[in-house]
Simulated assay, not measured.
Amino acid sequence: MKRTLMRKTAMTVAGLTLFGTLVGGGTAVAVTNGADTGLASCVTGTRNWGGNILSQYGCTEYDLPNGEQQVFGIGTDGAIWTRWSRTNGTLSSWTSLNGQGRSSVYAGGTAWAITLSVIGTDGNWWYNNRGGTASGGWSGWHR
């Protein structure tokens, strides 16, 4: 089942800004790291993914067909970053998908074929498509 951050809502609880809900259950939140209120750790309904993402955009989780999950967020450099779980329980390193985002990253698709959507620095929607196999690569950002 895919989980996509469809709508961003913000609420402040005990000094933390919480963001959004996930389609299909669970929650996606940005937990501030205390050093900079504009940065957050990527936290979803399944785990704390760590990292430093821009808290105003939160992160998006996508369930892969083999039981792994993949998350996407906007890093401190404005680029779109991803991290995924492995079937043995370990996590990959954060990997840049490049591009520059100024919105939450939306993930949709079926099985391994994922389409990411984000508003770029030019105000237009940009897309990056992942191939439909377990070893599929990304197409690169296009409008």
Results as ranks from 00 to 15, higher is better:
M1E: 09
M1V: 09
K2Y: 03
R3S: 12
R3F: 13
M6T: 11
R7D: 13
R7C: 08
K8D: 11
K8N: 14
T9A: 10
T9H: 13
A10N: 13
A10C: 10
M11A: 14
M11Q: 14
T12D: 14
V13S: 12
A14R: 14
L16F: 14
T17S: 15
L18M: 13
L18A: 11
L18G: 08
T21I: 14
T21R: 15
L22M: 13
L22P: 02
V23K: 12
G26I: 12
G26D: 11
A30S: 15
A30Q: 04
V31L: 14
T32A: 09
G34Y: 07
D36P: 05
G38K: 11
G38C: 04
G38I: 03
L39T: 08
L39Q: 15
L39R: 13
S41Y: 12
C42V: 11
C42M: 10
V43M: 06
G45W: 05
T46W: 05
N48K: 07
N48C: 08
G51V: 03
G51N: 03
N52F: 05
I53K: 00
I53T: 02
I53G: 00
L54F: 05
S55P: 03
Q56F: 04
Y57F: 15
Y57A: 02
Y57S: 03
G58L: 02
G58I: 02
T60W: 01
T60N: 06
P65W: 05
N66G: 12
G67Q: 11
E68M: 11
E68D: 15
V71W: 00
F72L: 06
I74N: 01
G78W: 06
A79N: 10
A79P: 01
I80M: 02
W81A: 01
T82W: 00
T82L: 02
T82I: 03
T82H: 00
T82F: 00
R83S: 12
R83Y: 07
W84Y: 12
S85F: 04
R86T: 13
R86D: 10
G89R: 15
T90A: 12
L91Y: 10
L91I: 06
S92T: 15
W94M: 07
W94S: 04
W94F: 07
T95H: 10
T95R: 14
S96V: 06
L97R: 04
N98L: 11
N98V: 06
N98P: 01
G101Q: 01
G101W: 01
R102K: 08
R102A: 03
S104C: 05
V105Q: 02
Y106A: 06
Y106K: 08
A107C: 03
G108Q: 11
T110A: 13
A111F: 12
A111S: 15
W112Q: 15
A113L: 10
I114P: 00
I114T: 03
L116F: 01
I119D: 00
G120T: 04
G120Q: 03
D122I: 07
G123H: 04
N124A: 14
N124H: 09
W125V: 14
W125R: 12
W126K: 00
Y127G: 01
N128W: 00
N128T: 03
G131H: 09
G132Y: 07
T133P: 12
G136A: 09
G136P: 07
G136N: 08
W138L: 07
W138Y: 09
S139N: 06
S139G: 11
S139M: 07
G140E: 06
W141D: 02
H142K: 12
